[in-house]
Design a protein around this nucleic acid. Structure first.
Lengths: 221, 221
DNA sequence: CGCTTTCGTTAGAAGTTATAACTGACCTCA
DNA sequence: TGAGGTCAGTTATAACTTCTAACGAAAGCG
């Protein structure tokens, strides 16, 4: 019994139409990118005339914001699910890559070029910090200081800085080394994924997955 | 004596108008991003009516492609200039960061979200490989195998793969270790810059430059 | 059954890119 | 110096886009 079943017929219909709009929006974005999204085209595809869509989304921006929210939510769920099934940092890396390759434009909706004026709603930044939280959890291994610390490249100046500037991890007990590790995980993997999905490796001849795996090895050694 | 001086008055005028169009296009992109670029608005700003611009650029896409080309050219020149003045890999990293921060939207024009259908002209990919070349030069230190190899994190599987898949560096004598180093330089620094310029570090409290410098230290240690 | 809410419609305003046809100025060349 | 061609910029127009306003009709609720 899903949520939709519990609502009035009108609400069910409304939810269904909204879902179809979003689905077709995803299709358009996948083939033409976010700037190629056209409300009019969606309406025509659905057999209704332009302005009808404004009953469901106040503006084109609101629709896109909704898609961004869903993309963030999807990524957060993917990461959390991987973490819940016992994946270590390397496992999270694999999950992240699979999620990115599954729908490149969805990845770019989250991590792509921002519109200068745009400011994400609070609930989206909340999801972002949820992702960060999962990363921080995985960044401090189970037997933390017990056995020989299998650390990747430590960096005292950076850790000193992070120790004093950790608003983003204020409510997380991770030590500076884990903060550093989580940040590197994020930035390094995003660097590869972003360039790969944008096609900057095309024609170079090597397989990006080798580079990705190599970075994962170093991050978790 | 610049190129403009040698041309006919008509060509000089034409070049000047083209330059002014591009300048205003940059201004628009800086404040509204690439999707916010409007040919009509530029024409009005310049005191002429819409279609006049089509004498100078065949389409909006052609104008943007021209801007992308200039952005690539600017980056390549910046990197080459740094390399020519004796900068090592870390120095190139500093130059790259300065260039990116100087005009974030210009950076995104090169490394931002791609339009799915778009394929860059050959001369642009040529500039890209020119950048890669400068990176490869700096990635193999002066006294390469002479003294104790001050290597960052080696990775045999990755280097083995790169040794056999080096089309992108076919005409460059750099050893696999240098290929790996150049690739990591590129992807890691882009990862940080991309997230920083997109504002993903906003409100986290730490200074991205610390992370950037830390990565540079590890890449060049 | 009647009232109200909501959905979808058409009409229209204000934009956009881009093309076609025309005018007028400049530049070259005889 | 005059004639012709080239080229810049114009207006008009088509085909789009987002989005608002006003209206009709259908569906749900008391």
């Amino acid at each position: 019994m899903t949520v939709a079943d519990k609502a009035t017929p009108r609400e069910r219909y409304r939810a269904q139409v909204r879902a179809e709009i979003k689905q077709r929006a995803w299709d358009q974005i996948a083939t033409a990118g976010a700037p190629g999204l056209s409300l009019n085209a969606i309406a025509k595809q659905m057999g209704m005339s332009g302005p009808a869509l404004y009953r469901y989304f106040a503006s084109r921006d609101e629709l896109i914001t909704e898609l961004v929210r869903d993309a963030y939510r999807s990524l957060a769920d993917t990461i959390r699910a991987a973490a819940a099934s016992g994946a270590d940092l390397a496992g999270l890396g694999q999950a992240l890559r699979a999620w990115a390759l599954d729908d490149p434009q969805r990845y770019f909706l989250v991590y792509g070029t921002p519109v200068p004026g745009y400011h994400a709603p609070d609930d989206i930044t909340l999801i972002a910090s949820e992702i960060m939280d999962a990363l921080l959890n995985a960044a401090q291994p189970a037997g933390a200081a017990a056995d020989t610390p299998p650390d990747d490249d430590p960096d005292t100046p950076l850790e000193a800085h992070l120790a004093q500037h950790r608003q983003w991890a204020a409510d997380h007990p991770a030590p500076p080394a884990a903060l550093r590790r989580a940040l590197r995980f994020w930035t390094r993997l995003h660097g590869i994924l972003s360039l790969e999905l944008a096609g900057h490796f095309n024609g170079m001849g090597f397989d990006p997955v080798e580079l990705y795996e190599s970075e994962l090895r170093h991050l978790t050694r």
